[in-house]
Computed example of a mutant assay.
Amino acid sequence: MDWLHWWRQGDAVTQATALALLAMSVASWVVIAWKARLLHRGRTDVARCLAAFWQAPGMDAACRTLAAFDREALVLPLVDAAGSVATAQSAGTLAQAGSRSQQLTRVLRDALHIVLAKLQFGQVLLATVGSTAPFVGLLGTVWGIYHALTEIAGAGQISIDRVAGPVGEALIMTAAGLAVAIPAVLAYNGFGRAVARIEADLEGFALDLRELLLGTAAQAPAEDA
Rank of each mutant, 00 (worst) to 15 (best):
D45A: 14
A181N: 05
A67M: 11
Q120W: 01
A148I: 12
A91F: 00
A18C: 10
E72D: 11
A217D: 09
G177F: 03
C63P: 00
M24V: 06
R71K: 13
V124E: 03
F135M: 13
T132M: 14
L112Y: 09
K118T: 14
Q15W: 03
S90A: 15
E72F: 01
F191D: 11
A52N: 06
G168F: 00
I172W: 12
Q15L: 13
A200L: 04
A97L: 01
L108W: 05
E211K: 07
V79N: 04
A133G: 04
A73C: 15
G168W: 01
A117F: 01
V115S: 07
R71P: 02
L207Y: 04
A164C: 09
G83K: 02
A68I: 01
G98P: 03
W3D: 11
A82Y: 08
L39G: 13
F121N: 12
G215M: 06
R193Q: 14
H40M: 12
W54N: 10
T128F: 01
V79E: 03
V115C: 11
D161R: 12
G204I: 07
V46P: 01
G144D: 04
D80W: 04
L38E: 10
V13K: 10
A81N: 08
T141P: 02
G168S: 14
W7F: 10
L126P: 04
F191L: 09
S99T: 15
F205C: 11
A91M: 05
E72T: 02
T17W: 00
R210Y: 00
T132S: 15
W34Q: 14
A86I: 03
I172L: 14
L74W: 02
A12G: 11
D224N: 09
R197C: 08
W29E: 10
D110Q: 12
S101F: 00
F191E: 03
T216Q: 15
V124M: 14
D60G: 12
I32Y: 06
A73H: 14
D80C: 00
W54E: 12
D110F: 06
D60A: 15
A181Q: 01
G165H: 12
T17L: 04
A97C: 01
A194D: 11
V142K: 10
S28G: 12
T128I: 01
D224K: 15
T216H: 12
G122H: 13
R48N: 06
A95E: 13
A82L: 03
A155Q: 08
F205G: 09
L116E: 13
L74Y: 05
A52E: 07
I145V: 11
A218T: 06
A88N: 00
L209K: 10
P57F: 00
G130N: 05
M24Y: 03
G177Q: 00
G10E: 12
D45C: 09
A155E: 00
V129F: 06
D80N: 06
A127P: 07
A81I: 03
Q120I: 09
L4D: 05
A47V: 07
L22R: 07
